[in-house]
Simulated scan of single mutants.
Amino acid sequence: MLLHRVFLHDPASTPGKSGHATYLHRPQGAGRWDNPSLYDAWYLSPAAEGAVGETLGNLATWSADMFEHPSGMRRALATFSVPDDLSIFDFDDATNLQHLGMRPSQVVIRNKAFTQSKAATLFAETHHGGGRRWAGVSWWSYHRPSWRNVMLWGTAGEPAPLTLQTVEPLTLTSIAVVEAGRALSKPIP
């Protein structure tokens, strides 16, 4: 399975360092599924346009300067491969919501204390053999419910199972940008 994320890119950066697709900005804790004392949270999307839309969807106007950052880095789209058989808890599944005693509205409402506690509960779930039951969680996009979001967790002992495939610097003509703009009704100059 392929997953995508938008990040600040420095072509000279090395793996795990700022500006590289495998760098995770810290401190974490502001994301809806974050629990930095337990795991690193990798936010991704199975759709490239979903990753762009999640990152830029709150901007009222889209223009070429939205890709630039004051640090001198530029936004880029990273594509990772992950094993197809990853066990991801899907918050768009009614049985899963029952398992946690949740209603769909509790996924939609942005109550980070609540969703972070549910993520911590899922992170702690294990199989009978002791292995972690879930590799992460998925839910629908706030910006476009047909887009799915995925958060994979990683720890020092069990890094997120991500293999970097490609990095594409983003421009107004990038297919993912054009598709996200169209889906979100953002006029692109």
Rank of each mutant, 00 (worst) to 15 (best):
E125C: 04
A76M: 09
N35E: 13
N96Q: 15
E125I: 02
G101E: 08
G157K: 09
A124K: 04
A135K: 01
W33S: 01
R133V: 07
A176N: 08
H127C: 10
H69E: 05
F91Q: 02
A119V: 06
A41R: 00
P11D: 14
R26C: 02
D90A: 14
A160Y: 01
R110Q: 15
A135S: 14
E68D: 13
G136M: 10
V177P: 06
V167W: 12
L38M: 02
S71G: 06
G129A: 10
T126S: 04
V52Q: 05
H25G: 00
Q116L: 10
S13F: 03
I109P: 01
T79N: 06
A64C: 03
P189S: 15
F123A: 01
S37Y: 01
Q116K: 07
A135I: 06
L184E: 05
N149H: 15
A60R: 11
I175V: 13
G72S: 11
A113W: 04
H143S: 08
P27A: 04
H9T: 02
W134L: 10
A180H: 09
P161T: 14
L24T: 04
V137S: 12
G181Y: 05
A51Q: 05
A12W: 03
F89Q: 02
L100W: 06
P11M: 07
P159Y: 02
P189D: 13
M73H: 12
P27Y: 04
R74N: 15
G129S: 09
G130P: 13
L100D: 09
G131Y: 05
D85T: 12
P104T: 12
W33D: 00
L122Y: 04
L2G: 01
F67T: 11
S81K: 10
G29P: 09
M151S: 11
L152G: 08
R26I: 04
A21V: 01
L152D: 02
E179I: 09
M66R: 14
R133P: 11
A78V: 09
E168H: 06
L44C: 08
T61Q: 14
S185K: 12
L164T: 11
A113E: 11
V137E: 09
V150I: 15
S146I: 07
W153M: 09
L152P: 02
Y142Q: 12
Q165C: 12
D90G: 14
S117G: 14
A21N: 00
E49I: 01
R74H: 14
E179P: 00
W147K: 03
G131T: 14
F89C: 10
P145Y: 08
D40I: 00
S71W: 13
R182Q: 06
A76K: 03
S87Q: 13
V178T: 15
H127R: 06
T22W: 00
